[in-house]
Amino acid sequence: MTARTMQAHPAGEEAAEAAIAHGASGMPTALVGMLLFIASEVMFFGGLFATYFSARAGVPAGAWHPPEPGHLDLPLAAVLTAVLVASSFTMQFGVWAIRRGDPGKLRLWTAITLGLGILFLAGQLYDYSQLGFSIADSSFGTVFYTLTGFHGAHVFGGVVGLTIVLARTTRGQFTARNHVAVEAVSMYWHFVDVVWIFVFSTIYLLR
């Protein structure tokens, strides 16, 4: 085996260490991870949407609706949409606040976002209780509950994340330089909102 000497760059070494050490270049590692995770979730919902459109295509025109005596509550769904979209705005206000170095505002906007998220979930559950059909009632029931149900589960996951962020910001752990968790949770929350817009448009508007 040949003897080798390791020629590390003497002057460059420290600079390199410092550069890598603080993840100085580009998007923070945790955010990259969250982005990739969101990509996989997009594909998951893609699969569910495929089942929705397939079920819809298998039914004669005009017959794609909840089985009697079930019905869809468009007004309630529209309100829930407004709630979730508003919560995306409030989340973004919070992110901008902490980027400016204002943890107080971050706390306020996160709390509002959390409240709106919980309101959405409560509204969704109320909706389920009023609909008059179940997952086992026709292919409409199956794809409806699967699509909205898994979306709701993802909202719940976001609510958990928001709670953690709220707890940490209350303890003053976020600064302008250091708030990757806020960015990550907000990215996830926007994703959940966008998925809902697709779900709402598909189920309630396109029909």
């Binding site: 890598i20 940490r168 752990q173 990757v180 990550a184």
Partner: peptide
């Protein structure tokens, strides 16, 4: 979160976290 706080606060310039540079994200 605790490990992140330790690496960020228990270090000075020139130190940092390479394998665990994330702010509380589960890794």
């Amino acid at each position: 979160n605790r490990e992140w706080q330790e690496t960020e606060h228990g270090s000075h310039a020139g130190h940092g976290s390479r394998g665990s540079h994330d702010d509380g994200a589960a890794h």
